[in-house]
Computed example of a mutant assay.
Amino acid sequence: MSQSVAYYNEHAQAFLDETLYVDMSALYDSFLPHLPENAHILDAGCGSGRDSREFLARGYRVTAFDASDKLAGLASRAISHPVSVRTFDQVSEYQTYDGIWASALHKVGKTAIWQTADRRPGRDEYWLNGVFQKCDNTRE
């Protein structure tokens, strides 16, 4: 288990409590208009499920996953929608999604998402949202 997954497993409830109701409207409004009606969105590294909940409320189909089993379980209950436990490298069906929402890229690095884009045979265009955060990986 990675240090990141161990951290989120240990702090799952606190993370959910702190993030589930954060307003991300500005980011949604820059991403969603590019998707077709009834689009299927992959919420990769969904964390608390906040974004999945909003996409579902707006009428989109959502597949959500997180690497933390404890966070995935809490998120699934909080949003009343399945959240699977897996990592980016365990997802092979990228071509089935109209958009990929990946706000957790600071946890996996940019390489994982670019490899994601390369795994989409048969698709000429898709929309990807990623939030990259600079991190120095030091511990106190």
Rank of each mutant, 00 (worst) to 15 (best):
N38L: 05
S4P: 01
L74G: 04
G130H: 06
E54N: 04
L16G: 07
D17T: 15
D89W: 03
R119K: 13
G47E: 03
S2E: 12
V131M: 05
S103Y: 11
S4M: 09
M1T: 10
A57P: 02
D118R: 14
I79W: 07
V108Y: 06
H106I: 13
A64S: 15
Y8K: 05
K110W: 10
P33F: 01
Q95C: 03
R119E: 08
I79C: 08
F55C: 12
M24R: 05
V85F: 07
F15T: 06
L32K: 01
F132N: 02
I100R: 02
R119V: 01
A104V: 00
Y126I: 00
A39K: 11
L42A: 09
E125I: 09
F65D: 01
H34Y: 04
V85H: 01
A75M: 05
P82Y: 00
E18N: 14
L27F: 08
L56E: 04
L128I: 15
V5C: 11
G49T: 06
L32E: 05
A6P: 05
G99T: 08
I79Y: 12
G47V: 05
G49F: 08
W101H: 11
N38P: 02
F88W: 12
A44T: 12
N38R: 08
W101E: 04
L16S: 09
Y60G: 03
V108D: 02
R53S: 14
W114A: 14
A26W: 03
M24A: 09
I113P: 07
F31A: 03
R119N: 11
S48I: 13
D51H: 05
P33D: 07
R61A: 10
E37D: 13
D29I: 11
Y126C: 09
P82C: 00
I113H: 03
I100N: 01
Y60M: 15
G109M: 09
D136N: 13
P36A: 04
Y126F: 12
V91P: 02
E10V: 14
A26E: 11
A78H: 05
K134W: 09
C46H: 00
V131R: 12
A75H: 02
D89G: 04
G59I: 02
G99Q: 02
S84M: 06
H34L: 14
G59H: 03
R139C: 12
D17E: 15
A72M: 06
Y97I: 00
E37A: 08
I79Q: 08
N137I: 12
E93G: 03
G130I: 15
R53M: 13
T87V: 07
D43I: 09
G47K: 06
D98L: 04
A44Q: 05
R123G: 09
G47D: 03
F55P: 01
L20Y: 01
W127K: 00
A14K: 08
N137M: 11
T116G: 13
S76W: 13
T87R: 10
C46Y: 00
D17L: 09
F88P: 03
D51N: 15
L42Q: 04
Y94N: 00
E93F: 12
H34I: 10
V91C: 10
L128A: 10
S103D: 10
D69V: 10
Y97V: 01
G47P: 13
Q95G: 06
A75N: 01
L32I: 13
D136M: 00
T111D: 11
H106L: 11
